[in-house]
Structures are given as C-alpha cells and as structure tokens.
Simulated assay, not measured.
Amino acid sequence: MARFTAVSADQASGATAEVFASIKQALGKVPNAYATLGTLAPEALKAMLAVDKVLAGGPLSKQDQETVKVTISELAGCDYCVAAHSMVGKLVGLSNDALHQIREGQSTGDARRDALVTFVRYLALNPGTLPQAQVDALLEAGYSGEEVVHIALAIAVITFTNVFNRINDTVVDFPKPQ
C-alpha cells in the first residue's frame, strides 16, 4: 500500500487538475506514480514531464531512452519503474528477451545497445569520475556528445521517479515484466 494518498483525476483541482488532464489526454489514464506526485507537488510532476519532453525531442531513440530507464530502475530496485518502462520498452520495439537481458546486464546481441547498458551500469555502480575508457567505449559505439548529455538527462529523470516510488512504495499499475 502506498504511503501517500493521491487524489483521482476526477477529484483533482487547480494545478493538479491541469497536469492530470494533460496526462490523461496523452495516456488515457493517470498512472499511480504521476497521481501521487501530482497530488503532493504538481510543479515537480510538471518539471519531470518537461524533462521527458526534452528527451522525446532529443537525439536518443525511444529504445535507447527506455534502455537507460530500465537499466537504472533495475539497479535502483524500483519495481514500479521497471514495470512501467518495460511496458513502454515493448511499445517502442524492445523484445521481452532484450528487456530481460537489459535488466540483467547481459548481452542483447546489439553492440550499440550493449555499449549503452554497460556505460549506464558502470556510471550507476561506480562513484567518482568515469574513466576515459568508459566514455570512449560509448563514443566508439556510435553515440555522440549530444546523446551522452541526453543519456545523463534520462538517468536524472528516472532517478527522481525511482527515488520517489521507493519512498512511497507506489502500487504498481503496469504488467509485471517477463
């Protein structure tokens, strides 16, 4: 059971109602994580959604964005985000096998995706400045400096939702990943 109470989209008012209306229009519903964030801090939810909009218009493919988000969520132990981004990953063309391999840090057979997973896992698991070899490996896999910035941005936004969902123990309203 979640630790914080969320208002339903139908009962929301003010800034919360506005952000819920835009989410409901885009997704058909307001997922539990968004509902709780929007109830408690609608401006924080708006900021998070604005970052996702920047990512959507950026150079990373949707598959790369979901690869980053699934990898970080798995490492953080955020069951909510693992489920949500595994579902979105499927919607953008990642197979169940690839998603499982991404979560486990195993080879997917796609050298570029594997370099991304390796980079993100190394960054998440090792404090301090990254060794040049880690950055070089990502660049050699074909990622640009601009894409590296967007990888960092994707990590930042998913880390926010991971942390909040872990604090809240948000009830998962997405299918469990296979």
Rank of each mutant, 00 (worst) to 15 (best):
S22W: 00
S22Q: 13
I23Y: 08
I23A: 08
K24N: 10
Q25A: 13
L27R: 15
G28I: 03
K29T: 10
P31L: 02
N32C: 08
N32Q: 07
N32L: 05
A35H: 04
A35G: 14
A35I: 08
T36L: 12
L37Q: 09
G38Y: 07
T39Y: 07
T39W: 08
L40I: 14
A41C: 02
A41S: 14
P42L: 05
P42G: 03
P42S: 00
E43F: 08
E43C: 02
L45A: 06
A47I: 04
A47E: 11
M48L: 15
A50Q: 14
A50C: 06
K53Q: 13
K53D: 15
K53A: 15
K53C: 00
L55I: 12
L55K: 06
A56W: 12
A56F: 12
G57K: 13
G58Q: 03
L60P: 08
D64Q: 11
D64H: 10
Q65E: 12
E66A: 00
T67M: 03
V68W: 09
V68Q: 01
K69T: 09
I72M: 13
S73W: 06
S73M: 10
A76Q: 14
A76R: 07
A76V: 05
A76H: 14
G77M: 02
D79W: 04
D79H: 14
D79A: 14
D79F: 04
D79G: 15
D79V: 10
C81V: 03
V82G: 01
V82K: 09
V82S: 02
V82T: 11
V82I: 11
A83N: 12
A84R: 05
A84H: 12
H85G: 10
H85F: 08
S86L: 06
M87T: 08
M87D: 09
G89H: 05
G89I: 04
L91P: 00
L91Q: 15
V92W: 01
G93M: 04
S95D: 11
N96I: 05
N96S: 12
D97G: 01
D97I: 03
H100I: 04
H100G: 05
Q101W: 04
I102Y: 02
I102Q: 02
R103F: 03
R103C: 01
G105V: 00
S107N: 10
